[in-house]
Amino acid sequence: MRALRFSSQAGIMHSLLLEETWDAFPLAKAEIRSSFSLTLDGHLICDFYTAEEWEKLEAAGYRCLPYGRLRKICLETISGKRAPGYFKFVFLAPPALVSQLLDQAGNGMRSEDVDALAMNLTYRDGSLRLTTGTSCRIFSMDKSLDQVWDHWVCEFLSKNHLDWSELV
Rank of each mutant, 00 (worst) to 15 (best):
G61E: 00
F156A: 05
A83R: 13
W54P: 01
M109V: 00
W54S: 04
L101K: 00
L128I: 08
W164M: 06
A118E: 11
M119R: 01
Q147N: 07
S127C: 09
S79N: 07
E55S: 11
F25E: 04
L121Y: 12
F89C: 13
S165I: 15
K143P: 00
M1L: 12
L157W: 14
F87Y: 15
G80H: 11
F6N: 04
D103C: 00
G80F: 12
D163C: 11
D125H: 06
I73L: 15
I32Q: 00
M141Q: 14
T132H: 07
F87A: 08
V153S: 10
M13I: 13
H43V: 01
F48L: 02
K88L: 13
A93E: 08
K29G: 09
D142S: 08
E31M: 13
A60Q: 05
S135Y: 12
E112F: 02
L92V: 05
L162R: 05
S135D: 13
W54T: 02
L92I: 04
N107R: 06
P84Y: 00
E20W: 07
G126R: 03
S111D: 07
C74H: 05
L18N: 09
A93T: 08
F6I: 10
E31W: 09
L117Y: 04
V168R: 09
A118M: 08
Q9F: 02
S135M: 09
E155Y: 04
S158R: 13
A118I: 13
D23W: 11
D113L: 00
S8V: 06
L128Q: 03
D146E: 14
Q9Y: 04
D125M: 03
I78Y: 00
S127G: 04
P94G: 03
T122V: 08
L40R: 12
Y67G: 03
G68S: 08
E52H: 02
F25L: 13
V168E: 11
M1I: 11
S79P: 00
V148C: 11
S37G: 02
D103Y: 01
T132D: 10
H43F: 05
A59V: 01
L4I: 03
G106L: 05
A83C: 07
C64D: 15
S140I: 10
Q9I: 10
T50Q: 00
L117Q: 05
R82K: 15
L128Y: 02
R110D: 03
H14E: 07
T21I: 03
D47Y: 02
D146Q: 12
A60Y: 05
P84S: 01
I78E: 06
E58Q: 11
V114K: 05
V168D: 09
E55Q: 11
V114P: 10
N160T: 11
